[in-house]
């Protein structure tokens, strides 16, 4: 069983306590990018990704040449002034970055379409407002079936790459929030299974030294199987064939905005298509000297 990737806010003292650990660091400021990258490396840890949640537009982000090679997940409110973004495009293409745009802004589906078509890897950040599932479906169709080369759009590519009809595929991984892979820790070394649990104080362990023991923890196993409770409910999600990839994430809004069912069903179909294309294009592998 492989170790978890730890997700934490940028705190120098906390990062110094880790050793040989894969880390996702959440930054509050663009000025921390190089500093956090250096610190993680100096402490002999492995930087999985730096996350920045920026309240402004992509156009307003002060991208820097020195960010080259640093894995970044950037959440922004919108694209903003297109011409500004175009001016930054050569650098953006060079960076190890994925841009996330929120569904709370209706224009963002188009924004993601534009970014992907220009070769910028990007992703949907599911917000709190009602999601336009039809627009989401169009975007997913472009992402998976598009004939012309374009950059990936998450979580569609993640689902397509990892989909297995025989098991669940949790798109939370794209957002560093799947307890199979990621666990969250604060500066007081409280450990939680999701970002939300950490925020709400629902800790399951305390202390960095206990991270590797998490697999033995009963609460952890319980949390991993929490999805089963959905199937006991008599609501629509229990009977939805797309359950395997949405895992009830939109169950609260499904009654009011039922488009999620069709969307995730189509996404599963797209994933099947993606897999079949990959298998068709698979080259014969000969032994290597």
């Amino acid at each position: 069983m492989r170790d978890h990737i730890l997700v934490c806010q940028f705190d120098e003292d906390l990062v110094r306590k880790f050793h040989n650990q894969r880390l996702v660091i959440i930054l509050s400021d663009f000025n921390q990018v190089q500093q956090a990258h250096k610190l993680v490396n100096d402490c002999q840890n492995n930087l999985h990704c730096l996350v920045i949640d920026h309240a402004g537009s992509l156009a307003s982000v002060p991208f820097h040449e020195k960010w080259r090679g640093i894995p970044l997940a950037l959440f922004v409110s919108e694209i903003g002034a297109f011409k500004e973004v175009m001016g930054k495009l050569p650098l953006l293409r060079d960076l190890n970055i994925r841009i996330f745009l929120s569904t709370d802004n209706k224009e963002n589906c188009t924004g993601l379409h534009i970014l992907a078509s220009l070769g910028i890897d990007c992703g949907v950040s599911f917000g709190e407002k009602e999601i336009d599932w039809e627009a989401m479906n169009d975007l997913m169709t472009y992402s998976i079936y598009g004939k012309v080369n374009h950059a990936s759009i998450e979580p569609f590519q993640f689902i397509a790459r990892n989909y297995n009809p025989a098991r669940l595929t949790d798109l939370s991984s794209v957002y560093f929030d799947n307890p199979y892979t990621y666990i969250h820790i604060d500066k007081n070394e409280n450990i939680a299974l999701t970002a939300n649990d950490l925020k709400e104080g629902k800790f399951i362990l305390k202390g960095i030294e206990n991270v590797h023991k998490i697999f033995e923890d009963e609460k952890y196993q319980e949390a991993l199987n929490a999805w089963q409770k959905f199937l006991l409910k008599e609501n629509g999600c229990a009977y939805c064939q797309a359950w395997r990839i949405c895992i009830g994430k939109f169950s609260e809004s499904a009654d009011k905005n039922p488009g999620c069912r069709q969307f995730f069903t189509d996404l599963m179909e797209a994933a099947d298509h993606f897999i079949s294309v990959q298998q068709k294009n698979k080259r014969k592998e000969v032994w290597q000297p």
Partner: peptide
């Protein structure tokens, strides 16, 4: 925009 991208593709 979406239609422009479709045509360009």
């Amino acid at each position: 925009w979406d239609n422009l991208i479709y045509i360009a593709d």
